[in-house]
Amino acid sequence: MTYALIGARIFNDNTTWLDGYAVVIDAGRITAVTPEGALDPAIERQSTSGLLVPGFIDVQVNGGGGVLFNDSPNVEGITAIGAAHRAYGTTGFLPTFITDTPARMRQAIAATREAAAQQAPGLLGVHLEGPFLNPARKGIHDPALIRPMDDDDIRQITALAHDLPENMRVHVTLAPEMVEATAIDQLIAAGVVLSAGHTAASAEAIIDARARGLSGFTHLFNAMPPLTSRDPGPVGVAFTDPESFCGLIVDLHHASPIALKAAIRAHGPERMMLVTDAMSSVGFSEDTFALLGRQITRADGRLTADDGTLAGSDLDMASAVRNTVNCLDVSLEEALRMASLYPAMFLRVENELGRITPGYQANLVALDADLNVSGSWINGIGTPPQ
C-alpha cells in the first residue's frame, strides 16, 4: 500500500525543515519527499500535524510498561517494553539485560533470537549490560553476579551476533580492564558493538580498547571515575575522542546539566547519543518495583534503592529530547540527531534508519509544539501513542 503523510513540518534528511511537503511511503519504506502539490492524485493522503521527525532510537532500555527484561526474558517481555516506549517516540530499541545469572542471560539471548525471527516491532538487537564489569563501579548491579567473561560467554554472544538479521546488533557493555584483550578482539571480529561502562579503567586501558574496536561509553559519567588532572580515566578519553560514541542520560539526575554541557562542548555533539536507561516504571503507574530482589522507589523523577543508589531511570526519549533542548543549550535539530541519527550510526544502521529520506525505513515520529509525541510509525505502520 502506498500512502503519503501530509500536513506536518518535515525534518528532511535530519538537516532541513520542509513546509508543504509530503512523505510518501510504500512497503514500509520512504519512497519520496515531495511537495504536496506534486503528489499523484491517486495516492492516499493521511493528515498529521506539528513536526515529523525520524523515529527515536534508544540503545539502553531495561524495561517499560511494568515489565523488566531481566524479569521477563522472553518475546512477550521484549514486545511489551517496545510498545511502552513507542508511546514516547521510540521506534527502534535494544532491550537491555543487566548483570544476572548465566542461565538467565542465556534466556535473554534466546528471547532476542526468537523476537528477531518474529520481527518484533522496533527491535534492533539486544544490549547486555554486564556481567563483565568492575565491582568497584557496580552501581545497582549485584556484585555477587559480576564475573569474568569465559569461552562459553564468547561463544553465545558471537553466535547471536551471527544469527541476527543484518540490521540488528548485539551491544555489550563491559569494563575493559576486567576482560582479556583476546576476548575483546573475538567479539569485535564477530561484529559485536562494545562500550565501556561500570569501569575503573585508566585512560591508557580505554585507549587500547578503543584501538581494538571499542565504540564508546555507556552512560558517560555514571559508574566510572571522574576526570582528574593526573588520572583522566574514561571521561577524559571521551572528552578528547570525538570519534567515540557516548550515551547520555539526560534526566537531570544522573548527571548535572553543567557536566553534560561540558561533555558536549568538549567532545562535540556528533556521536553523543540520548539514552534512557529506563526501568519498568516508564509508562506504568506503580511507584515501586523489584529489581533483582531489591525494592526500587520512584520519587521526583528518580529511581533509587533503599541505600540511595540510582537504579536506572524513569526517563523516556521524548523527555530526553525536551531536556536536552531546554537545559543543555542544544538546538532542537541537534537534539533530534542525538535521539535518532547518532544512535543509528552507533549501531551501524545509518543507511536504514535515522533520516527522513528516500530509501530509508519509514520509522517516524510526530511531535506537537511542546515536543510531545502525537503519533509514530514503524516500518510505515502508524500507531498513536498508547
Rank of each mutant, 00 (worst) to 15 (best):
D307K: 07
H141M: 09
P135I: 08
G7W: 05
G82I: 04
Q46D: 04
T34E: 11
R337I: 03
P73T: 02
E36Q: 10
L310Q: 06
A144H: 14
F346H: 11
A362Q: 06
L252E: 09
I25V: 15
E334G: 01
G139W: 07
V192R: 11
L371R: 12
A200N: 11
L248K: 00
L164G: 06
R45K: 14
I146R: 02
A339E: 08
R210S: 10
A84W: 04
G7E: 02
R348K: 14
L5V: 13
E177H: 08
I146G: 01
I10D: 08
T304F: 02
R302P: 00
L291A: 04
V61I: 13
I206G: 10
L291G: 00
G122P: 13
T31M: 02
A259D: 12
N379V: 01
G216F: 13
L160R: 13
P148V: 11
H162K: 11
D251A: 09
R212F: 13
F93N: 05
A255H: 07
F11G: 03
F245Q: 04
G380W: 03
I264V: 15
T31Y: 00
A159T: 14
S256Y: 01
H171A: 00
T15K: 15
M168C: 10
A38D: 15
L353N: 00
L164T: 05
A32P: 03
G233F: 01
V282Q: 05
A83H: 07
T158N: 07
I378S: 05
S202N: 01
G64K: 01
V330A: 04
V24H: 06
S215M: 15
T15G: 06
G283M: 08
E180D: 15
P176R: 09
S285I: 03
T240R: 14
